[in-house]
Nucleic acid binder design. Structure first.
Lengths: 180, 180
DNA sequence: CGGCTTCATTATGGGATATAACCATGAAGC
DNA sequence: GCTTCATGGTTATATCCCATAATGAAGCCG
């Protein structure tokens, strides 16, 4: 990969000064390393984050979990399907329509292994970055992402970007149990 | 500053301490704002970066440009097609197989407008971040992305990730002119 | 000339994500 | 008790981004 040395710097032009561009390149690099590292467990970044959230909040609702992760509920379903099929988590019916999410023992075990790999991954990716620098980086990124905003406790959950919002049209679907 | 508020922090678990996760969320946020902001020009991030590189390197080869940007040449083609169709750039045949890329006047004009919008976008996304903080952020991200590595002048171009690499299969294709 | 390499292209598939439509259940109102 | 509405989950579909494989043709070099 080319990059910023004087000679090559010209190729990028002002691009090297744009935060967005640096962000994209860094993100691609980090994700690639993540995938390579956790590949042996067949865990992609999204899987890892889902397991982490469920582990930290046993019994959490699907809707709440995917809202926290910023994943559309529609996309969350096949994700959970996959993890459930692998025996890593269970959907426990709460009342006929809501599911509480729980890790299985196997899920917890895999997550533990994943965390160890993840540590190695972070160390490799961050290279010789001081703890302070790392902390500052996370703080800055979280601020940019708006992750440090005040509690969305009673927040409208899906207040992302739909001014009108409502759609109340009834349809057909089903909170149907997947694993009867 | 561990980002999150106490209440919500629980939902994320250790996720708030992972650089990769913060990176992803920040990147999504920034790109969304970019798209919203430059939407009126119908420019996506990739388009903008391509125009920027060509503007800074008139006549640059396709292969060189896409290598610099970390884009696969195969994916680069339709990207250029689109921009060319819009009259923003021209492919100038150098010798029958290689194309030099140039912005048209219209391309330069659009890029200028885009830059103004981009400035607004960055200011909005970075909020009240000091110039120093911004600079440090870019430096850190560039280091993570490996963008600060030493010049790959004569580097093998496609040295990304194929240990075996070779495939010496014969081909058939065509640098065929698109705009004869 | 003949083989290898380079440049550009086409075709194709996977992964992630957004949206819309939809069923069911539970909660609220009359 | 029945209607109305919001909630939780699911399906289906389209799009975007990116990666790989294979191809065509031109240039390079002995």
């Amino acid at each position: 990969m080319d990059a910023l040395h004087p000679e090559v710097a010209g190729e990028f032009g002002p691009l090297t000064k744009y935060v967005g561009y640096a962000l994209r390149r860094a993100q691609l690099k980090v994700f690639q390393d993540f995938i390579d590292t956790l590949g042996e467990l067949d865990l992609r970044p999204a899987h890892f984050s889902v397991l982490t959230v469920i582990d930290a909040n046993p019994g959490i609702l699907q809707s709440r979990a995917c809202a926290a992760l910023g994943i559309q509920k529609a996309n969350f379903v096949p994700l959970l399907d996959g993890l459930q099929r692998r025996g890593l988590l269970r959907r426990v019916a709460l009342n006929g329509r809501a599911n509480g999410l729980h890790l299985t023992d196997e899920g917890r075990k895999l997550l533990a292994r994943a965390r160890r790999l993840h540590d190695r991954h972070e160390r490799r990716v961050l290279g010789v970055m001081s703890a302070l620098e790392r902390k500052r980086l996370i703080a800055t990124l979280s601020r940019i992402a708006g992750l440090d905003e005040v509690s969305p406790r009673a927040a409208p959950a899906a207040a992302r970007r739909s001014p009108s919002g409502s759609a109340a049209a009834p349809r057909r679907g089903s909170a149907a149990k997947r694993s009867p």
